[in-house]
Design a protein around this nucleic acid. Structure first.
Lengths: 223, 223
DNA sequence: TAGATTGTTAATCGATTAACAATC
DNA sequence: TAGATTGTTAATCGATTAACAATC
């Protein structure tokens, strides 16, 4: 009856594609459309139609042969599957460049996340409000987390402080950490860390661009 | 002799892991160390030792049995493989929240990318300097791209403007676009688009956190 | 009805992992 | 030398793709 705890019901690549489908579906809905075929969705990505059908099947969304998928119920299925039907309250820790940018990104709400408070150690930032979010001193995190029952944190501190701050988060009862610090974090088994590494995408881009601009460099097989 | 143009010499997941290895190796180098074993590297990630060896093999880095990998040559191999041994000059288009944050991120240089100019349409921003990078009016992009021979752009404009700006970039001779707009971009075949979607990572985190906090919800197989 | 589209079941493809001989 | 570690070759695993019957 109970699903094995740590096994997601869908392949990871599927979960990663769902937000893009969701954006697309919302756009079509806002344009007044009611149904859309998997083929059409696929056409707007670099993905095969069968892939879209498989992905959507994971969320429980069901299409009608010959017709396609009803947009509204499909949106709801994806949102529910991702847990984006209810806002998850979260803290943001580290209000530097990246942290501030994320605070200014209103799109989080559309993605089920509500940043309810920011934290930093810099006295110049503490007490200020960045794009509507108040920044508190780091040592107030634990008590606020408990009072507000916040369980998720966005970690945008410098890499040198990452582990130290993480220990603090774990002590405060945080169970999900979106980690932008670039460091591996040591956490108890039941705490989830999602690693975000912008340089991964950059690596793919630059290596492809280099192949394009300077072909037959280091990269040839062996000869 | 010539490698097939668009096939990277390494699996994509490998390329995405390399920047993390690189950061780690640099840290160990800066700590004064000279060699490191694949086993040690693996221990600092959620990765098997054999995976590290395979990944490093792709870059041409060679280890010594019983000893491990010499740090300095391995760093150089990864940098060369990714094309990070020479700085690639790039433009950043869209100096809003995310764009400004990226401009403030000094780490790009360590990742082979040098943002040499920013662009925006907002007159309030044009002419200003954000973290040392001057912001120009968008209509100056083409001439500057040609004069400076810039071939890569970071796209951080609102999704509604994404395609329009992309057409402009392509006309200006840009061949690599790091796309944060969340939109699929229509480009000629020989232009590379690297899609970056922060909400993908967020989806993985929230769905896992939801499984943890509210187990046995929608996600059970079927019963 | 005819035909486009879904969803299932099977085949393919590619990445990860395992096993182990080679080696410093 | 003994033993840890590499790199190669083979096995496994999981995701993508293909084929096709079911269906509105």
């Amino acid at each position: 009856m109970a699903p094995s705890k740590n096994k997601p019901a869908a392949p990871l690549p599927t979960i990663r594609r769902l937000p893009a489908y969701l954006r697309l579906l919302r756009r079509h809905r806002n344009a007044g459309e009611q149904v859309i075929s998997g083929t059409t969705i696929a056409g707007e990505f670099q993905v095969e139609p069968i892939q879209v059908r498989k992905d959507l099947a994971c969320t429980g969304a069901a299409g009608k042969p010959r017709v396609g998928f009803e947009i509204e119920p499909t949106i709801e299925a994806i949102e529910k599957f991702l847990g984006w039907d209810n806002l998850t309250q979260a803290f943001l820790v580290g209000a530097g460049h990246l942290g501030s940018a994320l605070l200014g990104y209103e799109g989080f709400r559309r993605h089920g996340l509500e940043i309810v408070a920011g934290f930093d150690t810099d006295p110049a930032v503490v007490g200020r409000t960045i794009d509507g979010t108040e920044i508190f001193a780091l040592d107030r995190l634990a008590s606020l987390a408990r009072r507000m029952s916040v369980r998720v944190a966005v970690l945008t501190v410098p890499s040198t402080a990452a582990q130290e701050v993480t220990d603090l988060l774990v002590d405060a009862g945080i169970v999900g950490i979106w980690n932008f610090s670039g460091r591996k974090l040591a956490v108890p088994e039941d705490v989830i860390v999602q690693y975000e590494d912008l340089s991964a995408g950059l690596a793919v881009l630059t290596s492809r661009v280099n192949d394009l601009l300077h072909p037959s460099s280091t990269r040839d097989a062996k000869a």
